[in-house]
């Protein structure tokens, strides 16, 4: 009774071995295994590249930041009173006034021009309330 299925299985295996599709299947299987084996490598390579790019970008950010602050310091130094006086004296040939004449005029003085402050944060504009169709239609009902 039990020998019939065993014989049947052997026949199927024998048929499979003798079948011309076996090498193809084996090649396909090898390719799948090969690709699966390469996948972590590809992933690793991609991640390494990304990490490298991140580091490069961080480096670039640091560099720009350093350049920006150097320029800011340069602006501040150019606006220093000592430099302005030196320029006025040496380049423009100016001298401090010996006598001051006061003249009254009927217009307010101009606003003093400060250096664009690099330190103070931008004034945040007040958030505007969002408009909507319903508000436009029924806004007159609201207080």
């Amino acid at each position: 009774m039990a020998t019939a299925p065993r014989t049947q299985t052997r026949a199927v295996i024998a048929e499979l071995v003798q079948s011309p599709t076996l090498p193809v299947l084996l090649i396909l299987a090898a390719m799948v295994i090969g690709i699966a084996a390469l996948l972590p490598l590809v992933q690793s390579s991609g991640a390494t590249t990304t990490a490298g790019n991140i580091q490069a970008l961080e480096q670039e950010k640091t560099s720009w930041q350093a350049q920006l602050r150097e320029l800011e310091t340069q602006v501040a130094t150019l606006g220093s009173l000592n430099r302005i006086e030196a320029e006025a004296r040496d380049r423009l040939g100016m001298e401090p006034p010996q006598v001051t004449h006061y003249i009254t005029v009927d217009v307010p003085p101009p606003e003093s021009q400060k250096l664009p402050s690099r330190f103070l944060p931008n004034e945040h504009p007040k958030p505007q309330s969002e408009s909507s169709l319903w508000k436009d239609l029924f806004g007159w009902m609201l207080p």
């Binding site: 350093a66 602050r69 150097e70 250096l115 330190f119």
Partner: peptide, 13 residues
Amino acid sequence: LDRNGYPLAASED
């Protein structure tokens, strides 16, 4: 900063 915003001591990178 001085009272008008001019830097008297600042840091650069």
